[in-house]
């Protein structure tokens, strides 16, 4: 076993143990503790945005900037793919 593989194995075991312990220390499944923000959104989504779909009201109204950044990332990815292959096809 080379030195690189040994370091990789140590890193992998430490990460695995850390993640497993942290998964055991999470809150019980189905009983989240802090629910204030989501309760507020569920109660006011129909009155403020007129939407019957709570997820859509979050995506396009309460967190619109998030969707704007996402659209920017999609645009950048398409531009990058087209740039790479246009240069390659010549």
């Amino acid at each position: 076993m080379s030195k690189r593989n040994l370091f990789a194995l140590i890193f992998f075991v430490i990460m695995a143990v850390f993640l497993f312990i942290s998964s055991l220390m999470m809150h019980p499944f189905g009983n989240p503790e802090k629910t204030n923000m989501d309760d507020e959104i569920i109660e006011n989504a129909q009155i403020e945005t007129g939407t019957n779909n709570g997820v859509t009201s979050v995506v396009f109204d309460y967190r619109g900037f998030d969707t704007l950044g996402e659209a920017t990332i999609l645009f950048t990815a398409v531009a990058g793919v087209i740039m790479i292959f246009r240069r390659m096809n010549k």
Binding site: T49, G50, N52, T56, F60, D61
Partner: peptide, 12 residues
């Protein structure tokens, strides 16, 4: 219903 949200759905 829902204001500009259907129009934004079409754009996206």
């Amino acid at each position: 219903t829902a204001g500009v949200i259907p129009l934004m759905n079409f754009a996206v």
